[in-house]
Design a protein around this nucleic acid. Structure first.
Lengths: 153, 153
DNA sequence: GCGATTTACATGCATTTGCATGTATCGAAG
DNA sequence: CTTCGATACATGCAAATGCATGTAAATCGC
């Protein structure tokens, strides 16, 4: 019997996670080196990107926090910096006096688009040659399934 | 024709990467919250882990840097902190007067094992219920292929 | 409907991080 | 052998980050 099929479920899960994590590190290291991220840290871009994908245009701070690997306080200050630089606006949430709503300004939307175009090209240049289209679709499916399962708990 | 099959290669690659990245964020957020990481940041644990998996026991600083998403200077100081806490040792590299070699101390190895056991359980508890064994093996294969392709360039 | 608990976000402060640069060694070219 | 550029790691310093905590609003229990 093949080794992979006899190893314990716990070990398989650990190896799978480690492989996913190392792949993320390897790709991210390349992406971060792009000239576009001289102007804006990757976490900052990520916030602009998430806002750009939001149908209503407005997001709560804690909704943003689900997408980014940052503590609540760090995200709070990151958004504060983006506001000072004129890339996002903040407004008290109408239905909840504790909350704030955030959206892109025109300048923020423009910057996101500009960096986004280059970023997408960089991603394609790294991922495209590495995996076939079918493999990419399968990787997309598996990671989305994993994310959904983890978020649901 | 299905939408997924008609989308451009560039778009597919970008969506695949985003999905992988979001999954990594979702899982990492849970793992970081474990009590074990009160004593040791995840990046610090990662260095101990990488050293524990090294056959010779010794690694160069720049070899370590390939595994961790940290700048060279940050890793230099991270190792300095680990040395002060007694978890690693540093020695000038014998074959290269510029380099240093790092290895675990007994205390470091013990701490890595202890945190590692809990960490592996946490991983299994998150990944195990999310994906079947066959899916995990496929995810492992795809992420390893991606990592190898990116590292090779 | 009122006090107690929880949730959302902000802020003080110590630690960590990255960028730019410094120091020392290595390797290549002549 | 000498010089010049590249590589490996360390360090000064400003900025970012996380933890603990603060403030204010919402929600829960009775």
């Amino acid at each position: 019997m093949h080794a992979k099929t006899t190893e314990s479920p716990v070990r398989l899960a650990a190896e799978t996670w480690e492989s996913l994590f190392r792949a993320q590190v390897a790709v991210m290291r390349r992406l971060q080196a792009a000239p576009a991220f001289k102007a804006l840290a990757l976490n900052e871009y990520d916030v602009l990107f998430t806002l750009s994908r939001c149908p209503s245009g407005w997001l709560r701070l804690n909704e943003l926090n689900d997408n980014v690997l940052l503590s609540q306080s760090s995200l709070s200050r990151l958004v504060e910096r983006l506001e000072k630089r004129g890339f996002v606006e903040r407004t008290p949430a109408p239905e909840d006096g504790r909350g704030i709503l955030i959206r892109l300004t025109d300048a923020g939307r423009e910057l996101q688009k500009q960096i986004g175009r280059e970023h997408v090209r960089d991603i394609a240049a790294l991922v495209g040659p590495a995996l076939s289209a079918a493999e990419q679709q399968e990787l997309l499916r598996l990671t989305e399934k994993l994310r959904a399962a983890v978020a649901a708990r």
